[in-house]
């Protein structure tokens, strides 16, 4: 499948774009940038100011919430198709974790300014993003409720 369509599929599987139409994701897919990292790199550090989200095309990324960015105690690892850092597309808060490159990786990144520019000109993108966030909030609420019951 061509690069553009693979990107669209990756975006569609991410939480933040899951409710955006695949047709509209074409413009977002075209705004993605390729980045390559080698094993041992850190893509971003905890508490660092963030401005983009990442989607893994190839490789393995470890996520750590240890305040020391050098320590490698991963709470989760991510592989092809996974995305991280997406909340920084919408808010100004610092990174809540450090992203380590465990294996040589190729990622697609989306800068928030590009996304905002797209949203200004294609308002339906924002509706889809809002819907995704709303559904995520609902499922988080349900998880909390069932955790409280337990």
């Amino acid at each position: 499948m061509s690069d553009l369509y693979s990107r669209i599929l990756l975006l569609k599987k991410s939480h933040i774009f899951s409710e955006v139409l695949t047709e509209d994701l074409r413009t977002v897919a075209q705004a993605l940038e390729n980045e390559a990292y080698v094993s041992g790199d850190r893509i971003f550090d905890i508490c660092q100011q963030g401005d983009r989200m990442y989607m893994i095309e190839r490789g393995k990324i470890g996520i750590s919430i240890d305040p020391d960015p050098v320590k490698k105690e991963f709470v989760t690892t991510m592989g092809p198709g996974d995305c991280f850092g997406e909340m920084n597309l919408l808010d100004e808060l610092p990174r809540s974790a450090t992203a380590y490159v465990i294996e040589d990786s190729s990622v697609l990144s989306l800068h928030k300014d590009k996304l905002r520019g797209l949203i200004v000109n294609y308002p339906e993108l924002s509706l889809g993003i809002l819907k995704s966030l709303s559904l995520r909030l609902r499922s988080t609420t349900l998880l909390l409720q069932s955790a409280q019951k337990d």
């Binding site: 499948m1 369509y5 139409l21 695949t22 047709e23």
Partner: peptide
């Protein structure tokens, strides 16, 4: 098949 996966999303939409 990734292309069929994309097809599935598209058909639903």
């Amino acid at each position: 098949n990734s292309a069929l996966e994309l097809m599935r999303y598209t058909l639903d939409e």
